[in-house]
């Protein structure tokens, strides 16, 4: 065992660089993930999220910088890292020719759990991930959500203390997405550290203790979800009025950021929370104005990029 320090970060990265040919994919990355927390790496396609995960999971060598994962130096002791982590990649890492149960047993054998302990662990995971009905089915017959659950279950066979989830909900229907979120929350409750990548701000917001926004291989901003949202101006309330008089009157009592005289709409800055909504409605009430329609626009990834890189996603693509 390595020397134990009272607060040991699960992941610490300093000055990490990675280039493919002449293209710099990761440029001087620093980050720290505290044990027992969820860290979300947020960014659009091609930002370098997957490369980051592949490096941390020992699949790719870094070109520079120092990385410690689960207390092991990545460059000097990759097997130490491998023994402590679990990886669920972007594409289902399952054996499609085997059944659900056989896939999990394969993992148990590779973790050298021993026959009875392995069988016990497999049954437990089948139960926990709601795969009992399909346990004897070949993986090729499972739905996308089931495959993703199996994929994650396989990652957990060895009871890793740190798991990497590369875009765990991309391509899943809303229901499977929520199931996956529940599973991640359950893992954290058990003390597991989760490092996840996502393209969805709401997902990072739901799950993460800290979010880092990755763009063009650089971390443009890092903080708690609340810190980030406070700094994103994209959230607003959109109010539509029935007649120009009400529209004009409302504009005088609200803190309007944008006014559209043709559509009779007003935009009011908001973090999407109840407080700002109540304040706006109270101001209208006092003035005796009833809005015809109200929508809440919460900041999305596009807003994050407008805020921190000065360019929207569309322009980048």
């Amino acid at each position: 065992m390595t020397t134990t320090v009272t607060t040991r970060p699960a992941v610490s990265v300093a000055g990490l660089r990675k280039t493919f040919g002449t293209k710099t994919v990761l440029d001087d990355i620093d980050l720290t993930v505290t044990e027992g927390t969820v860290f979300a790496l947020l960014g659009p396609n091609g930002a370098g999220k997957t490369t980051m995960v592949r490096i941390l999971a020992t699949l790719l060598p870094a070109d520079g910088g120092s990385v410690r994962v689960a207390g092991h130096d990545l460059a000097r002791d990759p097997d130490g890292v491998r023994a402590s982590i679990g990886l669920t990649g972007q594409f289902a890492a399952v054996d499609r020719l085997l059944t659900v149960q056989e896939n999990l047993r394969l993992m148990a054998s590779l973790h050298r759990l021993g026959k009875s302990a392995g069988a016990h662990r497999v049954d437990e995971l089948i139960e926990r991930f709601d795969l009992a009905e399909s346990a004897k089915k070949p993986v090729s017959l499972l739905s996308g959500g089931q495959q993703r659950r199996l994929d994650l279950a396989m990652t957990l066979v060895g009871s890793p203390r740190l798991i990497f989830l590369d875009e765990p909900t991309t391509g899943l229907d809303p229901r499977s997405r929520h199931t996956m979120w529940q599973i991640v929350r359950g893992l954290v409750a058990d003390g597991v550290t989760v490092f996840l990548t996502t393209q969805y701000l709401d997902e990072a917001d739901e799950l993460a203790d800290r979010i880092a926004v990755l763009d063009h291989g650089r971390i443009v901003v890092e903080g708690t979800p609340d810190e980030l949202k406070r700094r994103i101006p994209g959230g607003h309330l959109l109010l539509r009025f029935a007649d120009p008089a009400a529209h004009r009157a409302a504009a005088t009592v609200l803190d309007v950021t944008q006014k559209d005289d043709d559509a009779l709409t007003l935009q009011v800055a908001s973090d999407g929370g109840v407080t700002s909504l109540r304040a706006a409605l109270a101001a209208l009430e006092r003035a005796g104005i009833e809005p015809a329609d109200l929508t809440i626009h919460t900041p999305d990834l596009d807003d994050v990029f407008f805020a921190f890189t000065g360019a929207g996603l569309e322009e980048k693509r």
Partner: peptide
């Protein structure tokens, strides 16, 4: 060509 090889390679086997 499938994801499984990444899983194997990220394990201490």
């Amino acid at each position: 060509t499938e994801g499984i090889v990444d899983r194997f390679r990220s394990m201490a086997i």
